[in-house]
Design a protein around this nucleic acid. Structure first.
Lengths: 215, 215
DNA sequence: CATTATACGGAACGGCTGTTCTTTTGTCAA
DNA sequence: TTGACAAAAGAACAGCCGTTCCGTATAATG
């Protein structure tokens, strides 16, 4: 069940082509790259590769070709998938609340892709980009992405998106309910907590992850 | 520069199609899915999407279509967007330098999986976990993962892993060479920079990304 | 009103693309 | 030798596919 030299070169070419173009090559492109003058021979060897489990083909479809995963992808074992998350807008102190639901948003259609182990349940999860440096006490800075799970309640010690009603302000803080009031603790222990009456606090969601990409 | 409803639906369809087939759809497939009867209109909107930076097109090529990264990062959606990165150890102030190369490390064999867009070149890239709160001026806290590209030089404004020789200390700072000395600027602008003679500074690498996973 | 830009529909053109058919070559067992 | 079979080559076909051209509708602008 060995691969012929031609088949090895075809596989290598398909991999390289996919890396460069992110769509598969045509039969003729494969033939030209590997030095096969006849399309029927390429098709013949593609069928052999499919029999041996190296590729998957969609018949009669141009570029209908898929590489099956070889042993090259180790990964963590658990995280073999990607999750797409809606990018819903921006979060910043002072002004407006992050928008939910049907409202117009500037990032409509854009998605953020993370590995599954960063977001266990992609339902009700969305991402906001931080504007301004008002979140520095949460160890978050301008341009960072904050991944948020939308929920109205939280457990103690959760990092939450907290909206303080009378201040019209949205911040990220650790959540410590203390009877009638709530202590909101910055992520940076060098900063002081603030205290808010429980009825003045609106929980917008829980922070699931923070991602900062430099350069 | 907003997307029309059609364009959003086209993007969503392309994503779903890529996830299912791992090759891009044709213009006619897009049109049929989104409810556009004319191929020229699909082409027209694909051009708008390309202008706005959401996709990339290879002209005159069947299925010559590629999803582009979002403004910060995002998956390609073709299912090949994962990169495994070595987890090399921990980083913290005071004690030892992060280990490189063949030395023994507690995370041997473990890998961190990220999307390709977070790490463009996985060569010489590794991840360190932060211990202690000594990195708070870099907006990094205990438990965060710092993705580092190993290099001995840096560009001004890079966030670097800086080792100050006479202090035996490793920190994350923005790098500003100023002639004979180097200004190391914390990521948190509320903190003051420190100044180090150029020959006392050893650059261990460049920070590529910071990932914080909560809950 | 005329002008311009944007968005959409329909139809046709020409090249691309996978498939099929026919033929040839080389190898190996009977 | 003969027959079977894998592998390859070339040619032709039908359908696929991106592009182009022409026309229409709407909104904004002056």
């Amino acid at each position: 069940m060995n691969l012929s030299e031609r088949q090895v070169r075809m596989l290598e070419f398909i991999r390289a082509y996919l890396r460069e173009h992110s769509y598969p090559p045509t039969i003729r492109e494969i033939g030209k790259a590997v030095g096969i003058p006849s399309t029927s021979v390429v098709k013949y060897n593609l069928e052999r590769l499919q029999e041996k489990g190296f590729i998957e083909r969609s018949g009669e479809v141009s570029r209908g070709l898929k590489l099956k995963d070889g042993p090259s992808f180790g990964g963590t074992g658990n995280g073999q998938g990607l999750v797409s998350i809606r990018m819903l807008g921006v979060i910043h102190a002072g002004a407006s609340t992050p928008t939910f639901g049907e409202e117009e948003d500037p990032y409509a259609g854009e998605m953020l892709t993370l590995t599954v182990d960063m977001v266990r349940d992609p339902k009700d999860v969305y991402a906001l980009q931080v504007v301004g440096d008002s979140m520095i006490d949460a160890l978050v800075n301008e341009g960072d992405w904050v991944v948020i799970k939308h929920q109205r309640t939280a457990q103690p010690r959760d990092m939450i998106v907290a909206r303080i009603l009378d201040k019209e302000e949205t911040t990220l803080k650790y959540y410590y309910p203390e009877g009638e009031r709530v202590r909101l603790q910055p992520a940076n222990p060098k900063y002081d907590p603030i205290y808010v009456p429980a009825e003045q606090l609106e929980i917008q969601g829980k922070v699931v992850a923070v991602v900062r990409q430099l350069q």
